[in-house]
Nucleic acid binder design. Sequence first.
DNA 1: CTTTTGTTTCGTTATTAGACGAAATACTAA
DNA 2: TTAGTATTTCGTCTAATAACGAAACAAAAG
Lengths: 105, 105
Amino acid sequence: MEIKEKVKVYTDKQEKIARYSKALGHPVRVFIMDFLVKNTDKCCYSGDMAEELPIARSTLSQHLKELKEAGLIQGEINPPYIKYCINRTGWSEAKELLGTFFNRK
Amino acid sequence: MEIKEKVKVYTDKQEKIARYSKALGHPVRVFIMDFLVKNTDKCCYSGDMAEELPIARSTLSQHLKELKEAGLIQGEINPPYIKYCINRTGWSEAKELLGTFFNRK
DNA sequence: CTTTTGTTTCGTTATTAGACGAAATACTAA
DNA sequence: TTAGTATTTCGTCTAATAACGAAACAAAAG
């Protein structure tokens, strides 16, 4: 057998599903999303969430960064606060992708 | 009563969502789930999937193990093969949990 | 200008994940 | 018994994740 040509192994959908899922793969980050979805209208400060979590603020900040990089949330600077909201584009895409992932056929 | 009360920060749902999401947080594992769902009736051998993936069989085996431990798939020994199938219980739970996670209010 | 405030970034450490090839396992067939 | 087949487990390596406190930052208030 000669060399297998495997240019593209995973579909874009699979890659995206993995990316969004990975972002949700920690209880703190699920908590954050829950928190933000519950307060979709007003957005939230990092400190609001920090009060309910038994982790250092710097650790929370890292989780927020991951969610932001995955496209699930966005931060808006509102000094000296930073308001966090759901990123509706990413959230919708994740919802759509996971939806069809679980509900097919 | 209790000597030490363990404060529960995350709900069971949040923990489970994180667990299932983490399991799906790699393209190979999304691929595997896609593969198994597509062949829900007949189940699949590890080797069937190995042929389509550019990774060592031992690596695939590890991913299968993770999905199994997360409760998303199950393996049935059928020597010298092992037939893998969706674990319907876990799959349904993940579907339900993620569904309500994304579609609330 | 200096202090205060809320948050992030940095530096560090420990743990976990992802990958591979080699070896082991478990069953079948010869 | 021995050889063959499909798959997993083991040993090892590197990279990524998760966590913390300290330090940095940016804007507002004093």
